[in-house]
Design a protein around this nucleic acid. Structure first.
Lengths: 241, 241
DNA sequence: ACCTGAACACCGTTCAAGT
DNA sequence: ACCTGAACACCGTTCAAGT
């Protein structure tokens, strides 16, 4: 019973020296995050984490409720690793810049996307972006309610865009599975779908776009609904056409 | 050994009578789709399909290359089950209506979302929506290149919106895992995030929105970029507020 | 309180063999 | 050509037991 001092060998994960507890939540999530970053969410399993930490699979369940909770925990702290950019004073420009920044950050963290789809925002370090979008939207003349909806709309677009950009990259890497619609359009289809047929050959090139331009268009559309339009706020005040 | 006439019992899946082949691709994908529709994509496994069809797991691999291919195959034909709506003549209204329709259809097919994220559009019956979005965008004055980008933007938003709407519904069903940001915002956070703090309590109610309104705003933003603006094309010509 | 061992009920896929 | 059987290398999680 005096041998509760824990022999140092056996477990091949190097942990901090002199730690009384054999296993703490921090090392669990750190190990999980490393696996995900290196090999993707699909490579994460409770058994794998347990093996790498040097512990029985069931030991993890004393610190996390289940695999989903472990996944959410791996998110916290990631936003802080990206420096907060300087933002312009004009609220519309600010809105565009934050949205683009959100997109850029997540572009470099592709593994985060799959976990975010679980539905919760668990990294407090990312909330300044939400705040900024709300504040700038309101500064552009949107009501608080409109601002919340605008945030959601921007976020949904950014998320969807990243999912399909990633999917296209994956597909390009595996060219043997190329059965999207450029392939196999019968003559009858072509007659029914003239514009699509016309654009099919150069679809992939034409579809590539500047995310900033699209976000600016979306934001201008959202700001055009302002009940109290501001000087620099709406696109309609700009001589667009 | 003369009993190679195959006794009728055993396999509990009722197949068409007098079929010479024991197993054809159609029954495989039909069974797969049934499982997905009833229990979700997570419930689908090669072994499960094999069991229900009354065949060895490996028999499936003679007809589909792998699980992903089977998943894509389950998509084809789903769009045709939804009647094609009548659309207004005005191109901007058309654009909004098709986009809303796309959203509505997928809202009733939640299992399709996860498969679409694999990246390919495998149901030819859905292409008329793409065609309609392209044609209407061009009719509103967008160039073909702009139209393709507009389609992508609309689609990405619709997709993202559906993912998070589904996630919110799932979360609402499991109220014990409620640790989104209304919970746990320290006083320091509140000072840094005034707008968010202000709105946190009524976040979920305020965030609910009419998808048509948001799509209209996005579309107006996209159409405001028309190089050749059309009479009914832009939001700016409409007295929005 | 924290961890182990054994078990339950599963996975996708390869490979060699049967008819 | 089409299917089976056995195997490989895995899963998440429950439950009873150990210290």
């Amino acid at each position: 019973m005096a041998a509760e001092q824990k022999p140092p060998g056996d477990a091949r994960a190097k942990r901090a020296v002199g730690r009384p507890r054999r296993l703490d939540p921090e090392t669990i999530v750190a190990t999980a995050r490393r696996i995900i970053e290196e090999e993707g969410v699909a490579a994460l399993s409770m058994r794998r984490v347990a093996r790498e930490v040097g512990v029985t699979p069931m030991a993890l369940y004393h610190h996390v409720r289940d695999k989903d909770e472990l996944l959410m925990l791996t998110l916290s702290g990631t936003a802080a690793t990206f420096p907060r950019p300087e933002l312009p004073a004009d609220p519309r420009e600010r809105l565009i810049d934050v949205s683009v920044h959100m997109h850029q950050v997540l572009e470099q963290l592709p593994w985060v996307l799959e976990i975010l789809a679980l539905g919760d925002l668990t990294d407090k370090g990312a909330l300044w972006m939400v705040e900024e979008i709300l504040a700038s939207s309101i500064a552009c003349g949107l009501s608080p309610e409109q601002a919340v909806r605008a945030y959601r709309t921007i976020w949904h677009f950014v998320y969807g865009n990243l999912v399909f950009t990633a999917a296209m990259a994956r597909r390009a890497a595996e060219p043997e599975r190329q059965w999207n619609f450029p392939t196999m359009l019968t003559d009858e289809d072509a007659a029914q779908l003239p514009r699509l047929t016309e654009l099919a050959s150069r679809w992939d090139k034409v579809g590539e776009y500047d995310i900033r331009e699209q976000l600016a268009a979306i934001i201008d559309g959202l700001l055009s609904r302002a009940e109290r339009p501001q000087p620099g706020g709406g696109s309609t005040s700009q001589p667009v056409d």
